Computed example of a mutant assay.
Amino acid sequence: MSIIVTPEPGEATGEVAEIYAEDIADMGYVPSHTRVMATNPEAYRAWENLIGAIARPMDKRRYELITLAAAGALRSKACRLAHGKKSLQYISEDELVRIARDYHDAGLSAAEVAMMDFAEKLSTDSAAMTDADSTTLREYGFTDREIVDIALAAAARNYYSRALHALGVEVDVPSGLSEPLRSALVDTL
């Protein structure tokens, strides 16, 4: 549990109240990560703008796979759960359980596995990355723009997940996740 004191949704004012209202409209509640990160509403809005600039032009399935790989490498239960729920819009639950348990053995295309390997390596040992890592993506048909977007999506997840860890943010389990999916998303970390 975070030591950061946050207002209750009914007590928030100004930009924080607007941020809370957006989550209530979207999810029906204000997750712990929003409450803590909205302590700096300017940075929170900048984060939203950054993620929008990265994710908007990307294929949504691809973005979620990258995010799940980075969050898994970081052992971020909060991000795995939140994006596991979001991923259900683009990935069936059965496939998502397999991906969460071991994306190498989930029936993904070789290009998707390479992309997730790249996101995982960026999240665990980015200093060891070489041109060969990007070249592998190019060999699977990714354009320069797509390679940059993959790197940015994984790096952005590193920023957010690491901030949540550092601030001791409580992990919320989104409603509507089946027990097998919830287990696959977090028990493998």
Rank of each mutant, 00 (worst) to 15 (best):
S134I: 09
S134K: 11
S134H: 06
S134L: 09
S134F: 08
T135F: 11
T135A: 14
T135C: 08
T135E: 12
T136D: 11
T136Q: 13
T136I: 09
T136E: 11
T136N: 07
T136G: 04
T136M: 09
L137I: 00
L137W: 01
L137H: 02
L137C: 00
L137Q: 01
R138F: 11
R138T: 05
R138E: 05
R138I: 07
R138K: 14
E139D: 12
E139Q: 13
E139F: 07
Y140I: 00
Y140S: 01
Y140W: 02
Y140H: 12
G141D: 03
G141S: 10
G141P: 02
G141H: 02
G141E: 04
G141Q: 06
F142G: 03
F142W: 03
F142A: 01
F142E: 02
F142H: 09
F142L: 06
T143W: 07
T143H: 02
T143R: 08
T143V: 03
D144I: 06
D144M: 06
D144R: 14
R145Q: 14
R145M: 14
R145I: 08
R145N: 14
E146R: 00
E146G: 00
E146H: 03
E146P: 04
E146V: 03
I147G: 02
I147W: 03
V148K: 05
D149N: 13
D149K: 06
I150R: 05
I150W: 04
I150M: 07
I150Q: 01
A151C: 08
A151R: 01
L152T: 06
L152Y: 11
A153N: 04
A153M: 04
A154Y: 04
A154P: 01
A154R: 02
A155T: 05
A155Y: 00
A155R: 01
A156C: 13
A156Q: 15
R157F: 11
R157P: 04
N158C: 07
N158Y: 09
N158V: 10
Y159V: 13
Y159L: 14
Y160W: 15
S161P: 02
S161Y: 02
S161G: 09
R162L: 13
R162C: 11
R162I: 15
A163C: 13
A163L: 15
A163K: 13
A163T: 14
L164Q: 15
H165I: 14
H165N: 12
H165E: 15
L167G: 08
L167T: 11
L167K: 00
G168T: 11
G168F: 07
V169G: 04
V169K: 01
V169Y: 02
V169W: 00
V169F: 01
E170W: 06
E170Y: 08
E170N: 12
V171Q: 03
V171A: 00
V171R: 13
V171H: 10
D172L: 05
D172H: 12
D172A: 08
D172R: 03
V173D: 07
V173H: 10
V173L: 07
P174H: 05
P174S: 06
P174A: 05
S175D: 14
S175W: 09
